[in-house]
Write a protein that binds this DNA or RNA. Structure first.
Lengths: 366, 366
DNA sequence: TCATGCCATGGAACCGGTTCCGAATCGGGA
DNA sequence: TCCCGATTCGGAACCGGTTCCATGGCATGA
């Protein structure tokens, strides 16, 4: 027992070579002869040596980690993006350091610690707007920054057009003959720049206006991002009696679920008495047969992370700014047509202890 | 322009002190006189100097980061735990490095890279079982390891008794007079050690046996963890005709949603024709009025992370092993009693552009 | 006045890799 | 045989902090 920790020097001594050579072996340099390569690798194996991350970070000047700024992770839509980001980073050998942001002060704190201490090589912001002065600083330090579900000029980003999405949803309801269309959305989180709901609302207004319908603020309601809140707001709209909406556009599927629930409690038949469309195409909207606007959530994460990987490799992010496509997914909550049973997607077999759907089928579920 | 990066040496020179003194200032040592403290702080401020994380990691021998191993993040239950973990770590000034694990090989790869390269100071495993040989290695290297939603002897962990939970759920249905009780669960992921569903199944069998009811494997079904799959499986059970179950215990709320949906398609009235109970008490079960077994998800994360923080501070994790309590939340899907409208939780007010629930109300939603 | 001791401080050594420069070795052509 | 260039290699310097030890100054007590 000579030394506590085995370092690169230990390996070098043991293998009878210099530390430089060991380092070259570790980094796959081709400046090493076959014979010494084998010998060094053997020694590494024998000593069970692994280079220390923080040491190589220091001398290389990079951390091989990427910071991910994200808010309200619990929302399924945010989650999906996050998973996309993490998976791509992980495949590229980069650590994903997640920072959960609840308010503006926290955002600032995290940003300054991330940026100043250089604890990560790059930053991916999911849905959050980074304050201008921070962006300036990030630029000056040449730290790559990628925006997911967000867009700013001259920055690599992956985003959707929420205004267009809101229009699509509203047009869908208009095309079904609805004239009194309500809107239920989030409270704006302007401090964090999360404005998807408000943008979708803007699209809603535009679609109405294009159809020659003026805004009726009695049909508009906003609250926290939860089904419960949406149910309460929807109930309030239903109590307008004759003036109640015949259709509702909920700015997310989570809210749409609440609307559906409230409608059931008010004995409104869907879609005859009330048509509903949501946004995001979450799994819950599929199972509850809710019409929605599909956006590629996971893809926004993977594409954003891919851009980051490119940037860190010194390449240019291929499509620098990328807008993902949206499309309406009409389902029973607006059309009323019973959609096909999902049975065919799965093969149910008899197992030894009950029915069974084989795991492979899991891939069929998005 | 003298030096590219401002290091501790720059600050020392500029302030006319030694590097040691600057370091002491940075680390809040009390071995510094008031006068020099002020001077050094002033210089730091003026130069806008921040210590480099990787350099201090190297010399301190720790990274101030914690690795989080987690699988299928997209499940709301996993999500909630993860958020709890991240928030507590963040408050303690620790980075949360998230590793998403899809299969056994990936788990091994991540573990070896985490452990060998010492890229983190501690490891928190959410729901995943760490292979024995890895545990041995982790122990030998004295890397703190905390298990969340998992339990192993002699390791700090936060867990629930899934078997007892399965019993609770089944007993609830038995107490309502049901005798033909079905079970719908996940496919076991034995490779990752995610056995919650199977444990709940064991509890289900125990409760039945205690009630003098033998197992009927025709009423048991397993599939992927999705509402869609659960709907398919439930449909299959409903087609048993007279022999169909009058109640179903779904091993998670996500599956329960699928069961409810399938029941509606089969024109079964809930709970008269079919009673349903789920597990986890997710938000969706509340809005859809599904009975469930509540487990403190967020809390499991915060408690686990707190243990980690203690361990990293050299303290002993207070309750070394901690079992969280479960309780049945009876709702309409089994009792049939219309639960109170959630209206009272929220104050709806008239805003300038539509109805409004003030953001403060968000706290009322779990 | 001098010894004692504490406190503040400077700075060398160190953490464990990477990199670059100079040296050694080797092969091939003249 | 000698020279030249290419290839391989050793190791010092370096990355930017932390820590420990030696030193100097000051106050206290005898």
């Amino acid at each position: 027992m000579r030394k506590r920790t085995i370092s690169i020097a230990t390996v070098a001594a043991e293998a009878g070579v210099g530390v430089g050579t060991v380092s070259r072996v570790l980094n796959g340099s081709d400046q090493v002869s076959e014979a010494t390569l084998k010998r060094v690798l053997g020694t590494i194996e024998r000593l069970d040596y692994r280079p220390l991350r923080s040491a190589s970070s220091l001398s290389k000047g990079r951390t091989d980690a990427v910071g991910i700024l994200v808010s309200v992770i619990t929302r399924p839509s945010v989650m999906a993006r996050l998973v996309g980001v993490i998976d791509v980073l992980s495949d590229a050998g980069l650590d994903a350091v997640v920072f959960n942001v609840d308010n503006r002060a926290q955002l600032d704190r995290h940003l300054s610690s991330i940026i100043d201490q250089r604890r990560v090589d790059g930053i991916i912001s999911i849905s959050l707007r980074i304050p201008k002065e921070r962006i300036a600083r990030i630029r000056k330090l040449a730290i790559p920054l990628v925006l997911v579900d967000n867009s700013l000029p001259n920055l690599p980003c992956v985003y959707i057009d929420d205004v267009a999405g809101g229009k699509l949803a509203t047009e869908h309801l208009l095309s079904l003959g609805h004239r009194r269309i309500g809107f239920i959305g989030d409270n704006a989180r302007s401090d964090l720049g999360m404005s998807a709901s408000e943008n979708r609302y803007a699209g809603y207004l535009m679609a109405l206006e294009a159809a020659g319908i003026g805004p009726d603020f009695d049909l508009v309601a906003r609250g926290p991002h939860s089904s419960e809140a949406a149910a309460v707001l929807a109930s309030a709209l239903f109590e307008l009696g004759k003036r109640r909406p015949t259709a509702i556009f909920a700015s997310s599927d989570t809210l749409a679920v609440g609307v559906i629930k409230a409608a059931q409690q008010h004995r409104l038949k869907i879609p005859d008495d009330l048509a509903v469309i949501g946004f995001d195409n979450l799994e819950v909207s599929s199972i509850l047969d809710i019409s929605t606007v599909n956006q590629p959530l996971l893809e926004s994460g993977t594409k954003g992370a891919s851009k980051m990987v490119s940037l860190l490799n010194g390449e240019i992010a291929k499509p620098h700014r990328e807008e993902l496509v949206l499309d309406v997914v009409p389902r029973g909550s607006s059309l009323g047509i019973q959609r096909n049973s999902p049975t065919k997607l799965y093969g149910v077999v008899e197992g030894p202890k009950g029915l069974q759907i084989l795991q492979g089928g899991e891939e069929l579920v998005s």
